[in-house]
Amino acid sequence: MAFIQTDTFTLRGYECDAFGRMSIPALMNLMQESANRNAIDYGIGIADLAQKGVGWMLMRFCLRIHQYPRYGDTIQLMTYPTTVDKYFIHRDFRVLATDGTLLADARSTWLVFSMEKRSMVPLPDFIRQLSPPANVDPLPALPLKPDFQTASFATAASKSVQVGWLNIDQNQHVNNVAYVQWLLEGVDSEIVQTREIAEIDLVYRTESHWHDWLSVQSVTETDNSVLHRISQTESGKDVLLARSRWR
């Protein structure tokens, strides 16, 4: 069977920023919640995978905000898988206002990793056999290697953060939304106070764990875009690379 997850949320104060707009981390958390519910309906939820010794890991995520919902607004969030191949499952999200206006959309690419070896494995057959909905118009698939992966961070501003217990999810690594909050906190204060994000494009490279120290860097790319990098302080390995676009 094919399932489209549809959830309705009314925005609470702690989900909004200093200007009353829904925050990016709050929106991503709701998207993740709806994706979890949809995965459970398909029989591929976190618990289903854990029984087989594997877990979900987000590899790519691109969020576009067309119009920000605000405190007290009610939104409808829809999500569904679009395609499944040997190593990846692709999932779309759409956020609508009560009048049907498209507020935001997102594309994502997920992989499965071995809980024991902490390394990527092919999607198990029980995942590859699922049926994506046929009556949806999928967004274009994300490139696995976007151009900003090769950007230089030689002149980037940098700060250090340590992974806390509340940053860890059920897969025993840092939740993907925690990284986004850290990288947004690293953006120049004038941009944060005078602009708003139109798009954020993310590449997750490896996992990090409780007590790890991470280096968070950002560098201006153009008048309207900022590049981001989060790396492991000790090894120097990239954990996350991203580009944010501002208006």
Rank of each mutant, 00 (worst) to 15 (best):
W182N: 05
S218Y: 01
L240Y: 03
S158A: 15
R243Y: 01
N135I: 11
R118P: 05
S218R: 09
T8A: 06
A154S: 14
I46W: 07
G43D: 12
V239L: 12
R91H: 02
L30N: 00
S235K: 08
T206S: 13
D201S: 13
D73T: 06
H66L: 12
D169Y: 10
H90P: 03
T83P: 04
V95M: 14
L214C: 10
F88W: 06
F93G: 04
F9E: 00
I75K: 07
R107V: 14
V180D: 05
R70E: 11
S231T: 05
Y42S: 07
V192K: 13
L123D: 05
L58W: 00
V84Y: 06
S158P: 02
V226A: 08
A141V: 15
F113A: 06
F126Y: 09
G20F: 03
V112C: 15
R70N: 03
A39Q: 08
S114N: 14
A2F: 01
W56E: 05
A39C: 09
D41G: 07
M59E: 14
V203Y: 00
P69V: 04
R37W: 01
K86T: 14
D85Y: 10
A157H: 15
W110A: 10
A26I: 01
A104W: 01
F3G: 02
M59W: 08
E199W: 01
F19D: 11
E207I: 10
L227H: 07
T233R: 07
D238P: 06
E199C: 13
T82V: 11
D137I: 13
P81Y: 04
R245L: 11
